[in-house]
Amino acid sequence: MTEAPPVGLAVTDVSYSYGPKMALDGVGFAVARGEFCALLGPNGAGKSTLFALLTRLFVTDRGRIEVAGFDMRRHPRAALARIGVVFQQPTLDLDLSIRRNLLYFAALHGIGRREADGRIEAALERLDMRERADERARDLNGGHRRRMEIARAILHSPDVLLLDEPTVGLDAASRQAITRHVHALCADQGITVLWATHLVDEVWPDDALIILHRGKVLARGAAGEIAGALPLAERFLALTDGMGEAGA
């Protein structure tokens, strides 16, 4: 790789509406390379819409999205090649083996069999799941499935990892383990992480934090600073409450 771009992910003045309803209204933020950034917002804040734009499921002509220096509108394929995504809904093929699932994904990124095999071995090794590679994905528990999805999302060594409420449906222990795992990935491998959640306890004090509410950025900065003297949960409620009931 040539010169490393300083910004992992830049969103500038992005708006999106479903008919007359504004889902995102002038959203802008930047995540530095190798930074863990939490995107916190109540349900209906616009997180999913933002993720759809970041993964080019939707496009908008209002605003600009850049991934590792590539403009999503002008160079969509280069931008997508540098993104790894973990969706809210599970996307493993439960009846296929873990290895098959990973191979399928690698091929979607045009990675040939031999190279894919090497990367998959390494990924499984890291998760300590090498001997389970040929089991069906169905036989894994919820937490392990999520880990596999995260491992899959970084198989092509993306610069940016996007996770859309990745702990939905997991128990407290798995939730904590996954949160820790992704923080470690960010620290060890220098991946830029954008982690969407509505759960305050998944945000660490040193994380960069963006609070999204009703399609607008309410606050951004280090989580500890935004919280101030209050626990983050209370600050979050204070910021998002008092603005009427949260949007649907």
């Binding site: 993964t55 080019r56 499921l57 394929r77 280069a78 997508l80 090649a81 993104i83 995504v85 969706f87 809904q89 996307t91 994904f105 979607l108 990124h109 045009g110």
Partner: peptide, 8 residues
């Protein structure tokens, strides 16, 4: 969704 995030 997974399919459509492929850079192809």
């Amino acid at each position: 969704r997974l399919l459509l995030t492929s850079p192809m």
